[in-house]
């Protein structure tokens, strides 16, 4: 008898095999489809990497990529600067300020970006003498500047709403606490309210950047050669569909990288909030 060994190893019984339910089969079928299309996409791109198309057009795509980055970066920057006064006006108690700010935000958020771009780029021609008189006609003549102006105005409306929402979201007690400590209002705003508001605004700001990257493709329609513009030109010259597939890969890559960085960034900045 083996009674001497007192400790008997008790192990957990193995988990029952997961049944092949209809959902599971369906899920695996869908995944198989994604994997097959993913592999064929990679194969297609890899087999074309030495093709004449890529040889000829990769510098053009690189240039377009940087133009897109430039448009997005500048528009976001100008939009951010412009959004502060708009958000302040929008939150103001005086109708004189809040009503025009509301109209501005409503207009830019309620109409398509493409229509706004056309309105500025083509519509500026109607006011050519006036614009020449003040000397800012060169800005409206160049599609690139026009696009940046249109995108900045558009994103400033969205950013103003994000900012206003975030600031109004900070509890009143924070203002009152600062007042009780004898902190002046302006210092309280910058040192107490704004840091808390920006944390709330972080996620919508990230979404706004992604929206801007995607929206910047519209610049291609008004003859700016950003990534989309170069893609369209390459396609119209070569009639090779891989033009669009490369562009799709680059755009997806851009958005995904930004999303990942932003998630990290947010996790880092909000680490004190995790309990």
């Amino acid at each position: 008898m083996t009674g001497s060994t007192a400790t008997v190893q008790m192990s957990r019984p193995p988990a029952p095999p997961r049944a092949w339910t209809k959902t599971r089969i369906f899920g695996h079928t869908l995944m198989a489809m994604w994997i097959v299309s993913g592999i064929s996409l990679v194969y297609y791109l890899a087999s074309n990497i030495a093709s004449p198309f890529v040889q000829k057009y990769w510098p053009v795509y690189l240039h377009g990529f940087f133009v897109t980055l430039e448009i997005v970066g500048l528009s976001l920057l100008f939009g951010a600067l412009l959004s502060v006064p708009i958000a302040l006006a929008r939150a103001s108690r005086w109708k004189v300020f809040s009503a025009p700010a509301f109209a501005y935000v409503y207009f830019f958020r309620g109409t398509p970006l493409i229509a706004q771009t056309f309105l500025l780029y083509y519509g500026a021609g109607s006011f050519r003498p006036e614009l020449e008189a003040i000397g800012i006609w060169p800005i409206f003549r160049e599609a690139f500047y026009c696009v940046i102006l249109a995108f900045s105005l558009n994103t400033s409306a969205y950013q103003a709403e994000i900012l206003r929402g975030a600031i109004q979201n900070v509890p009143r007690g924070q203002w009152e606490g600062a007042q009780a400590l004898g902190i002046p209002r302006s210092v309280a705003f910058f040192k107490v309210i704004l840091p808390q508001a920006l944390l709330v605004a972080l996620r919508p700001y990230g979404n706004e950047i992604i929206l801007m990257i995607k929206g910047s493709a519209i610049a291609a329609i008004v003859t700016v050669f950003d990534l989309m513009g170069e893609t369209r030109r390459a396609y119209s010259r070569s009639y090779d569909f891989q033009a669009y597939i490369w562009a799709a890969v680059i755009y997806l890559f851009m958005v995904e990288v930004l999303r990942r960085i932003w998630d990290r960034f947010e996790a880092r900045l909000t680490r004190h909030l995790i309990r």
């Binding site: 959902t23 599971r24 899920g27 992604i210 990257i213 929206g215 291609a220 329609i221 989309m228 755009y251």
Partner: peptide, 23 residues
């Protein structure tokens, strides 16, 4: 609850929310 189904759906949204509408 099925991880494969969840992943397949997430790939779908990642692609179509990441691509510019124009593209």
């Amino acid at each position: 609850n099925e991880p494969s189904l969840k992943l397949a759906a997430n790939i779908y949204t990642t692609i179509f929310r990441g691509l510019p509408e124009l593209l």
